[in-house]
Amino acid sequence: MYPSSALGEFLRSRRARLRPEDVGLSPGVRHRRVAGLRREELAPLAGVSVGYYTRLEQGQSPNVSDEVLDSLARVLRLDDDEKGHLHRLARVLRSRERVKPERLRPGIRMMVDSFTDVPAVAVGRRGDFLAWNRLAHALLAPHWDFDGDEKPNFVRIDFLETDFSRSLFVDWEQKARDDIAYLEGSLSRFPGDEGLTALIEELTTLSPEFRALWTEHPVSNCASISRDYRHPDVGVMTLTAELLRTPDDEGQGVTVFQAEPGTPSQERLRRLAELVAAAAP
């Protein structure tokens, strides 16, 4: 699946979004065999030959220039996140290095433990919860053992434990798209992570919802997301998740969940913290 086909899959997904009239072309024939722009329609607009663009979609042009990528991004009307993703996918063609095993730095664990009033979790590049505080456990996966050796993976939970995830997230569909965007971003940065590609293959096999959404290749930096959570003990809360990364993160980050001050969500989050504190050993 990755890395050789990644660029082509992404380009085809973005071609499919556009109609000829969106880029100033005549619709042409009434019935088109494929959705969106044809290669022969896109290539001239981007200033490249049809043959070159075809090889690019086939992963056979590892030395594609930034200028060509910028031109394609313009024609395909990519936003900033998608444009950055396109450039990273092109770099994947030039590098097939394997990545080091993912290890949680002690400092990251200490950072997570320092948050006592809000949920906080250290997340790996595959979506694994590498460390979490008790509030994050109570919010995101209370059915898992907090002190267990095995920590959950939020993408697996959302797609394979759907009874739980659909009850937790008011807008499950958007959460699912954000999950896939997270994996897309990780793959473009760590194409040699065999565990990451294995996870995607597993979910593609086991989850029809994942399989359908993956073909759309949603892209987002996932840095700051506001979401509604339906917690069985305190009710619905609107929380903003801020993903904090460091320059040498190896794909890891710390996500902190906060509620807007003075809102019912803040009061419900405070109530959840009280319940967690009361139940702590």
Rank of each mutant, 00 (worst) to 15 (best):
G107T: 10
I108V: 13
R109M: 07
M110R: 13
M111R: 15
D113A: 10
F115Q: 02
F115H: 09
T116D: 03
D117V: 12
P119M: 01
P119N: 02
P119H: 02
P119R: 00
A120F: 06
V123I: 12
R125C: 08
G127I: 13
G127T: 13
F129H: 10
F129P: 00
L130G: 06
N133A: 04
N133G: 04
A138P: 04
A138D: 00
A138E: 00
A138S: 10
L140Y: 08
A141N: 02
A141K: 02
A141C: 04
P142T: 02
W144T: 07
W144P: 03
D145P: 09
F146T: 01
F146Y: 11
G148M: 03
G148C: 03
G148H: 02
D149H: 06
N153S: 00
N153D: 00
F154H: 15
I157Y: 15
D158F: 15
F159G: 15
L160G: 06
L160F: 07
F164T: 02
S165E: 15
R166P: 04
L168F: 05
F169D: 09
V170Y: 09
V170Q: 09
V170M: 08
D171V: 11
K175F: 08
K175G: 06
K175Y: 06
K175W: 07
R177W: 13
R177G: 11
R177T: 13
R177S: 14
D178P: 12
D178R: 14
D178F: 14
D179G: 12
A181Q: 03
Y182K: 07
Y182R: 08
L183A: 07
G185R: 04
S186H: 03
S186A: 10
L187D: 03
S188H: 04
S188T: 05
P191V: 14
G192Y: 04
E194M: 14
L196M: 08
T197I: 09
A198E: 14
I200L: 15
E201P: 13
L203N: 08
T205V: 13
S207E: 13
S207L: 12
